[in-house]
Simulated scan of single mutants.
Amino acid sequence: MRAKLTPALVGRGLLYTFLGAWFAVSTVKQEPTRRLEWYRKFDPGGLLLPEWRFFAPHPGTHDNNVLYRDELADGELTPWKEITSAVPRKFRHIFWLPEHRVDKVIFDLAAEVSNTILDGKLESPEDIQLSLPYLFLLNHVTHNHPHDPRAIRTQFLIARSAGWDESEEPLIVFYSNLHPIKRTTVRPGVKVPT
C-alpha cells in the first residue's frame, strides 16, 4: 500500500533534496586544489556555500609584531615598545573578547605592509607611506599609545617572528620614517576624553 502524497510530505521531500544538494555542493567546494570553480556561477559572492578551509592552502606560520619608539628633543631615541593589548585570559573570553579586534586589525595591517614590501610590488620604497595600511598603523601608534612627554617624533617597525618558536630569530621587515607627534593644547576648563 502506497502512502498518500500530502503537501507536507512533498514539502519535506523538497527540503531534504535541497539540503542534500547544498551539502554535496558545499563538500565539493572544499576541494583543496580549487580546480572546480563551477559553483561560483550559482554563488558568486560566497554567501550560500560555506568555506571550511580557513587558512588552507597557505596557513600562517609567522606573527607580525609592531613596535614603536620616540625621538626626544635632544635626538635620543627611547627603547622599542611592542604594541599589544594582551590581557590575562578569563573564562568569559571564550565567548566575549572585544579587545581582540584591535589586535586583529593591527596584525592584518602589519601583514599587509610586510607582504607589500616582501613581494617587491613597490616602484619606490617611499611609496609604502602612501598606502592605507601604513597610514592606519601610523595613526594608531601616534594616537593610541603612550609617548614620552619630551618626544617630538615617533617611529614604528614591523618584525616577523615564529611566535612561540624561539629557535628562529625575528626578521625586521620594515622601519618607518620618524613622524612628528602633534601635541594637542587644551584650553582651561575643557575636558579631555580619555
Score class of each variant (00 low, 15 high):
41 K>F: 09
51 E>P: 01
68 Y>E: 03
185 T>C: 05
127 D>S: 14
107 F>G: 09
148 D>F: 02
142 T>K: 15
82 E>Y: 08
22 W>H: 14
152 I>D: 05
45 G>L: 08
152 I>Y: 01
69 R>H: 02
179 H>M: 02
142 T>N: 12
123 E>V: 09
120 G>M: 07
194 T>M: 07
190 V>L: 10
73 A>T: 06
192 V>I: 15
71 E>S: 13
43 D>M: 05
158 I>A: 05
99 E>P: 01
113 V>S: 01
93 H>F: 00
92 R>G: 03
153 R>L: 03
143 H>V: 03
78 T>V: 04
50 P>L: 08
51 E>W: 10
11 G>D: 11
134 Y>S: 03
124 S>Q: 13
74 D>S: 09
194 T>Q: 13
165 D>E: 14
31 E>N: 09
44 P>E: 00
3 A>N: 07
188 P>G: 12
21 A>H: 11
108 D>F: 01
45 G>W: 11
161 S>D: 07
163 G>Q: 07
105 V>I: 14
27 T>D: 03
75 G>Q: 06
49 L>G: 09
169 E>Y: 02
56 A>Y: 10
16 Y>V: 11
115 N>S: 02
39 Y>I: 09
28 V>P: 04
194 T>R: 08
86 A>G: 04
30 Q>S: 12
164 W>V: 07
62 H>R: 12
26 S>H: 05
26 S>Q: 05
158 I>W: 08
20 G>K: 02
117 I>R: 05
63 D>I: 01
171 L>K: 13
7 P>K: 10
64 N>Q: 11
182 K>Y: 12
184 T>D: 13
59 P>R: 09
3 A>E: 13
6 T>E: 03
22 W>T: 08
37 E>T: 15
50 P>C: 07
188 P>C: 08
166 E>L: 12
48 L>C: 10
50 P>A: 10
119 D>S: 14
91 F>T: 06
170 P>L: 09
17 T>K: 13
172 I>P: 02
14 L>G: 04
193 P>I: 04
181 I>D: 07
181 I>Y: 06
125 P>Y: 11
152 I>Q: 10
84 T>A: 13
116 T>G: 11
106 I>D: 03
87 V>A: 15
173 V>H: 05
17 T>M: 15
45 G>T: 01
56 A>D: 14
78 T>E: 03
189 G>H: 11
124 S>L: 10
119 D>H: 04
164 W>D: 15
3 A>T: 08
76 E>D: 11
164 W>K: 14
127 D>I: 05
125 P>F: 09
147 H>N: 04
139 N>Q: 13
126 E>P: 00
105 V>S: 06
62 H>I: 00
189 G>I: 04
6 T>W: 08
189 G>M: 10
33 T>D: 14
